[in-house]
Amino acid sequence: MSTTAVPPNPPPIEVHDLTVSYDKKPVLWNIDVSFPEGQIIGIIGPNGAGKSTLIKSIMGLMPAESGWVKVYGQPLARQRRLVGYVPQRESVDWDFPVTVRDVVLMGTYGKLGLFRRPGKAERELCDHCLMQVGMAAFADRQIANLSGGQRQRVFLARALAQDSRIYLMDEPFVGVDAATEAAIIELLRTLKRQNRTLLVVHHDLQTAPEYFDSMLMLNMRLVAFGPTQEVFTTPLLQKTYGGRLTILSEAAEQVAGTRR
C-alpha cells in the first residue's frame, strides 16, 4: 500500500477501510470510498445492509473496528461543525416537552458550546430555517402535535440551523406525505447549489435515480459507488439486492462467536 500525500483539496468525506461491528459481529466490511463535494449522494441497499450503520459510524455514533473516516482531510472530532446529522424520526420521544423552535435551536448548540444560552441571533436564524422548510407558523407548537412530514421538516430545519458543509440524513423520506417529500428534495437541491454535500439513506428505488447525483450501493460491503447513470444498472442492482453473500455472513457469525 502506498502512502500518498494529502491532496490539496481533500474530499468532504473519506472513508478508509471501515469495518464496523455490532455486538462483535461485523456488519460492514472494509468500506473504502470518498465522496465528492457538492452532490446529493444516495445510499441504497436492502434492509439490514448496514445503510444506517454506515451513516452512524461516519458520525462517530458507532465505533469503527478498523479503518477511519476523515472530513475534509481531518478526523471528525475536529470537524464536527462541518457535519450536520438528521437522524431517523423514530429515534426520539415526540412527547418531549419542547417546542418546534426549541428543537431547531438545538442545531445551534454545537457552535454555542457549553454553558452559553442561545440568544437573539440564534433565534432569528432558527426562525429563518423554519421558514425555509415552511414551518414558520408552527414555531411555538409542542412537537407531539405534528404530523410525520412536519416532524421531518423540523429535523431538517434543525440541520439547516447547524449551517454545515455536509449533511448526513437517515431515511428522511420514510413516512412523509408527497408534499413534504417534494419540499425536502427541493431543499436538498438548494443546499447542493450552495456546494454542500448531502448523504441520504434511501430505500425507494423508484425515486432514487431522480433524486441523486451519485449512488452508493451497499450490502454488508460496498457494491458500487459512482454517478447515478453509471451505477444504477440492473446488474449492479441485482448484485446489491440479490441476497447476502452466504460466506460473508457465515464468517461474520464465526467471528462474533469466537470473540464473545
Binding site: 464536527r80 418531549f96 434543525r158
Partner: peptide, 22 residues
C-alpha cells in the same frame, strides 16, 4: 442549571447531541 441546555438536548436526542460534540 449550568448544563440545562445540554441535558435537555441529550435527553431528547442522544444521537444528535453526540454528533455536535455534547
Amino acid at each position: 442549571m449550568a448544563l440545562f441546555k445540554e441535558l435537555v438536548l441529550a435527553s431528547f436526542d442522544e444521537g444528535f447531541a453526540s454528533t455536535i460534540g455534547v
